[in-house]
Amino acid sequence: MGKQRLQRLFQEKKTNLLSIYLTAGYPEKDAMPKLIKTLADKKVDFIEAGMPYSDPLADGAVIQYSSNVALQNGMSLSLYFKQIAQIRPEVDLPLLFMGYFNQILKTGINRFLQQCKTAGIDGLIIPDLSPEIYQARYQKIFEKYDLSLIFLISPTTSEERIKMIDNLSSGFIYVVSSSATTGKSGGFGEEHLQYFEKIHQMFLKNPKMIGFGIDSAEKYQTACRYANGAIIGSAFIKALSSTDYLQSANAFIDKILRFN
């Protein structure tokens, strides 16, 4: 379906969106389709399906660990797309690919994006593809495929640059909550709130989702006051028990949404 699925979601729902990141192949090889189904049933709004990478530079210890386990479990790109294609007819929520640029480059950009389309991926988050290099080298190719491309902004991103990224993004803007790798916990302090407020007051074209370090219902609620919703990754991965991960996924979402 491509871009439309994410666009439709943000047209229909403006507040309190919840997105969950999972690592494909974790905690077991075939976990992803089951987890996607479970999360869809729990009314999670969209999913970032992470393809594990050997060298995830922007990720903290939790996602490094899950990626490592997933690769050892035998997760590969071909299996990833197979599992996405398998679950796509059963769920209607947007599914985003999250991974590192080398995985796309090595596959071949056209071939990779075509595989995304065929499997039913609606958009991509590629944390190490900078807007400058994207514009100079890859934008023309990406635009042929009508997929959402989500860029990140961080507390160190200047206003001018945020506007540039807003113009380049399709789907939403990923607002990284603090200058840190994924999974750094701790409360939102005054400087976080000032930063969220600054972004809020910029009235960007794209919807905004706040992510990185969100691990509680309280932080999810705070994020939702300043943006259209929040993304949870490391805390979700950490919550998955190896014995009954679907049950722990259910319990985790209940806990996050308990004030809704």
């Binding site: 990478y53 590969s76 790109l77 080398n102 995985q103 796309i104 090595k106």
Partner: peptide, 21 residues
């Protein structure tokens, strides 16, 4: 190696078909 990105640079890189280093 084949063309790939390591440590933020596009270069020659020892990697598998999926781009895992």
């Amino acid at each position: 190696g084949t063309d790939g990105v390591i440590h933020a640079s596009l270069t020659m890189l020892m990697q598998n078909v999926d781009g895992q280093i």
